[in-house]
């Protein structure tokens, strides 16, 4: 990661507001701010983990970036393999089609993300077909990619129902990587898999990053996986990034109370470490009706008056370490040790 190199992806003030409609004529009465003013960069070859609980907007954010859904504001600049830059937010869907070879997405559920009525060879080759590449070449490249991700080449004419969850996720990965992209959004790629299969897929994603010089936006709720995979971590809470830091810094010295609680709630597979987690009261509020001020204040044990009225900005508290908390300079928060 060199400092001078342009980031692969540069997201600025990205937002996605879903209109709330009422009545027969669907009058817009409000907005759910699923993603609200989010900014970050991803360097070439970097893995940025996006952590959050359900309703934090992490999946929506990932989908907005690859334009599976259309964001309502902000910028997301992708630097392509040929060095040109393009703003993914302002390009219309039609114009995006040629850009799509530079980015792709891996979904959480390997069962629903593969069309059940297509043989695997066509599924993996679909991004190439969409680029108008000849069938013969598609098949050659599919075989090459399938071998790379560890699929049995004899089974390529079968349908997805003949494959187990782990193999299906390999198919998804092959499909996402076949156009030789620079950037991948991986949305909970191992959450739906069996424990004994997860490691295979995580290793595969790591290998592919090294071989193909990929960058990932790695979306997950599992902090153990994050610690294993990520270079930097962004923590989301109700539509906003509340903390963004290099991984080891974030785990050792979190600067946001939510990150602290999240880290302490991770259950380690170690019966000796039955330490009491910092219990948060309640659950995260609905993004349709977020609390005033800092979204986290109703659950925060350090909350003060200012937190209830003024929304904190994401500001740098240490080099490369940003936190959106009024008290981040004063609090000494508990992290987890990295052996």
């Amino acid at each position: 990661m060199s400092e001078t190199e342009l980031p692969v992806l540069s997201v600025r003030a990205l937002q996605k507001h879903f209109p709330v409609e009422r009545g027969i004529i669907r009058r817009t009465v409000g907005a759910v701010k699923a993603v609200d003013d989010v900014s970050f960069d991803i360097a070439p070859g970097e893995i940025l983990a996006l952590v959050g609980e359900s309703g934090s907007g992490k999946t929506t954010l990932g989908r907005c970036i690859v334009r599976a859904i259309d964001p309502t504001g902000g910028e997301a600049t992708l630097t392509r393999r040929d060095g040109t830059s393009v703003d993914l937010v302002r390009t219309p869907q039609r114009g995006l089609r040629s850009i799509r070879s530079d980015m792709n997405m891996i979904f959480q559920d390997p069962f629903s993300s593969l069309s059940p009525r297509m043989p695997v060879i066509d599924i993996i080759g679909e991004p190439l077909r969409a680029q108008g590449i000849a069938r013969r070449e598609i098949h050659a490249r599919v075989r090459e990619m399938a071998a790379l991700v560890g699929l049995n080449l004899d089974y390529l004419t079968r349908y997805p129902n003949a494959f187990s969850g782990g193999q299906r996720q390999r198919i998804c990965i092959a499909r996402a990587l076949i156009t030789n992209p620079r950037f991948i959004v991986a949305d909970e790629p191992v959450s739906a898999l069996d424990v004994s299969i997860q490691a295979q897929i995580l290793n595969l994603l790591q290998d592919m990053r090294e071989r193909l010089n990929l960058s990932y936006l790695f979306i997950t709720h599992d902090l153990s996986v994050v610690e294993h995979m990520a270079d930097r971590v962004a923590v989301m809470y109700i539509g906003r990034i509340v903390e963004l830091a290099p991984k080891s810094r974030l785990y050792a010295t979190p600067r946001h109370p939510y990150t602290e609680a999240l880290l302490s709630a991770v259950l380690r597979p170690d019966p000796e470490a039955r330490d009491q987690p910092i219990l948060l009261t309640g659950e995260s509020a609905s993004p349709a009706a977020p609390p005033q001020g800092c979204h986290f204040h109703p659950r925060c044990r350090y909350a003060q008056d200012i937190c209830r009225t003024v929304a904190p900005q994401l500001t740098e508290v240490a080099p490369g370490h940003a936190s959106a908390c009024h008290l981040s300079k004063e609090l000494a928060l508990r992290g987890v040790g990295t052996a």
């Binding site: 599976a68 089609r97 040629s98 799509r100 070879s101 979904f107 993300s113 059940p116 499909r175």
Partner: peptide, 10 residues
């Protein structure tokens, strides 16, 4: 998801 995947695949 597979329809969204197709869209993402261009």
């Amino acid at each position: 998801d597979y329809v969204m995947a197709a869209k993402v695949n261009g």
